[in-house]
């Protein structure tokens, strides 16, 4: 019932009062936490971590139907346990924390960039570019969003997109942002060339084997390899395996897959171990006031 009260949708004045009440409760809880001695704070963190982890662990481990009423006539089998319905609201809490954190990020960016700009330190032009981009995109984006709030038809949407603000938004988003993102990604092509030229050297038998494998997989993935190099080899014969795409397929589906599976097992074991340590607060480091 308390959960329903917390998660029920609200609008208008009720929403405003609810948010204000939540902020006041949060401030009161933070003030109370600040008065606790450090040892008590540490135990509170340990307890909260344990309870949070226990919730998700039990929700996953308890079989469907645990502490749930049996299905009614005509209903399918029960697929959840008694904790499953709390997963969504708990998840929203973490999202709200992440949303608030975005504000922190913007504040940090503004703080870091304001000093060079105000004091004309070297690189102040970059800070000016940052503030210009931030303010212009914020204003244009919010203005366009406000215009789109009342749009319900395709014609209305088209009118907004062809307005001055819509054109400016398209210039900033499609013209600048999308193209800049594509440009940075395109740098990878150049870096791959320079990295390959520098790093692929025949220094050992393993390096040679790796290079031959890389050549086969590369040629097997492009039409010039499959069509011109081995395209003349017919399918359905014992020597058809010599076609570069078949060799590439075998490499990817057999040794590569085995290696990927082994890596996944190892990584997942590592994740289980680290997660266990964090859940039980056994992780050592400055988080937990222990000397390294």
């Amino acid at each position: 019932m308390f959960l329903s009260f917390l998660t029920a949708p609200r609008h208008g004045t009720q929403l405003f009062l609810f948010v204000l009440g939540a902020v006041l409760v949060f401030a009161a809880v933070m003030a109370a936490l600040h008065t606790l001695p450090p040892r008590a704070k540490r135990w509170l963190i340990v307890a909260c971590t344990f309870v949070a982890g226990l919730f998700y662990l039990l929700e996953f481990m308890l079989p469907p139907g645990t502490l749930m009423p049996p299905p009614g006539p005509g209903e399918g089998p029960v697929t959840d346990n008694f904790l499953s319905r709390y997963v969504e609201p708990v998840g929203y809490v973490t999202q709200i924390i992440a949303a608030v954190a975005i504000g922190l990020g913007v504040i940090n960016l503004a703080r870091v960039n304001s000093a060079p700009l105000l004091r004309f330190r070297p690189g102040w032009q970059n800070s000016l570019a940052f503030f210009t981009g931030l303010i212009v995109m914020l204003v244009v984006g919010l203005w366009r969003w406000k215009l789109l709030l009342n749009v319900t038809t395709v014609a209305q949407e088209k009118a907004v997109n062809e307005s001055t603000i819509g054109s400016l938004y398209r210039f900033l988003f499609d013209g600048l942002y999308s193209n800049l993102g594509g440009t940075v990604f395109a740098l990878l092509a150049f870096y791959i060339v320079s990295a390959s030229y520098r790093a692929f050297r025949l220094r050992s038998a393993e390096a040679t084997l790796m290079m031959i494998t890389a050549f086969i997989v590369m040629l097997g993935n492009v039409p010039v390899g499959t069509a011109y190099l081995t395209g003349w080899i017919p399918d359905g014969h014992w020597y058809s395996f010599l076609k570069v795409e078949h060799m590439s397929d075998w490499i990817m589906n057999t040794p590569n897959m085995a290696a990927q599976r082994a890596l996944i097992f190892g990584i997942m074991m590592g994740v289980i171990a680290v997660s266990l340590r964090i859940w039980l607060s056994l992780e050592r480091g400055r988080f937990f006031e222990q000397e390294l």
Partner: peptide
């Protein structure tokens, strides 16, 4: 677009072979 990708792959292979020849 794959034609460009094909040419690029050939170029990379050629450069790797060239780099190794020069190093040897």
């Amino acid at each position: 677009w794959m034609t460009s990708v094909s040419m690029t792959h050939i170029l990379i292979i050629a450069l790797i072979i060239l780099g190794n020849i020069l190093e040897i």
